[in-house]
Amino acid sequence: MKLTLQIWRQNGPQDKGKIENYQVDATEEMSFLEMLDVLNQQLIEEKKDPVAFDHDCREGICGACSMVINGRPHGPQKATTTCQLHMRHFKDGDTIVIEPFRANAFPVVKDLVVDRSAFDRIIQSGGYISVNTGQAPDGNDIPIEKGISATAFDAAACIGCGACVAACPNASAMLFTSAKVSHLALLPQGAVEGERRAQSMVAQMDKEGFGFCSNTGACEIECPKEISISNIARLNRQYLKSSIASSEINE
């Protein structure tokens, strides 16, 4: 199939960037990234600068791939990362617009590559359980209800790709942050420091310059791992509780 690609080219964070047009020949069996590989091979042969994009595992789990395809993070398929999107979902003659994830908190590094280290800093601010290696009791010392464990897993399935931020009209990181808060708060091991965690992670999230959540639900629709916005409600609850009824008496 012959495709016209309109790709955002931006040479570094300071560059203004613009859309450029490319033609590429693809086949149905290719993944979207393989189609871009073909384009890049073509560009290199013409001694031009290939399109930069983040990618790694190409099996939908590492969370590296990050582009917006025809206005939708990771493209049109539900619960699918860009690397798992295949060209059979496009038609011969299609024009495809490809852009980076856009948010102030995700500055563009080059072309379709963005800097998502804000997510790392949110995790660093409290997205963990404070246990040193060797301190753990036996794995079966604390039974955890199967349902609770499954709900925690649903939240823990987040791959940190940032599609939620890219999809949100406000570029909010609430789905990402709430998924981590939920994952840990639901488990008895993590509930211990749940209040502190909610406070510090929200503070960091605010500091990074993400927008506010206005419950549009776009994040949930675009999330390749189908993380639910019920996690956002849980974070709201945790935050409210920890703010007005914190067990920490200081302050």
């Binding site: 039974p143 955890i144 464990s149 994952h183 488990l187 091991q189």
Partner: peptide
């Protein structure tokens, strides 16, 4: 043990054990 303490959501039985 270490991973459970870190919050890794391993599969569990109905009794809550791993």
């Amino acid at each position: 043990d270490q991973c459970v303490a870190q919050g890794v959501p391993f599969a569990r039985e109905y009794g809550g054990l791993l």
